[in-house]
């Protein structure tokens, strides 16, 4: 999955996980992991790279991480960020 650089680059994030989408005017609160994933995507990391980052940073079963990450990608795709 290739990130959509335009929409992702537009997102305004702060360190507490607050996200403002200037295209829609909607705001969101991300978990720490969600924030790390989104920032990775903003830096051009691929989906596989994001998963590898999670596995490296956290003690988590790879299948569970993959499952959760897919759900996260699905959600942000609905928002038009991917």
């Amino acid at each position: 999955m290739d990130p959509n650089p335009t929409r992702l680059d537009d997102l305004m994030l702060n360190d507490r996980g607050f996200v403002f989408d200037p295209n829609t005017g909607e705001s969101y609160q991300l978990s720490t992991t969600g924030l790390a994933c989104l920032r990775s995507l903003q830096h051009g990391t691929t989906a596989a790279g994001v998963l590898a980052g999670i596995l490296e940073a956290q003690e988590v079963d790879p299948l569970t991480a993959r499952w959760d990450l897919d759900a996260f990608f699905w959600e942000i795709k609905q928002l038009g960020w991917l």
């Binding site: 537009d10 403002f20 200037p22 295209n23 829609t24 005017g25 909607e26």
Partner: peptide
Amino acid sequence: RKLIISDKGKGNGSVVVSD
């Protein structure tokens, strides 16, 4: 974008967007 809409449909609060 209207954030808060009154009973009369007026934007009692709005946020600047860039679309």
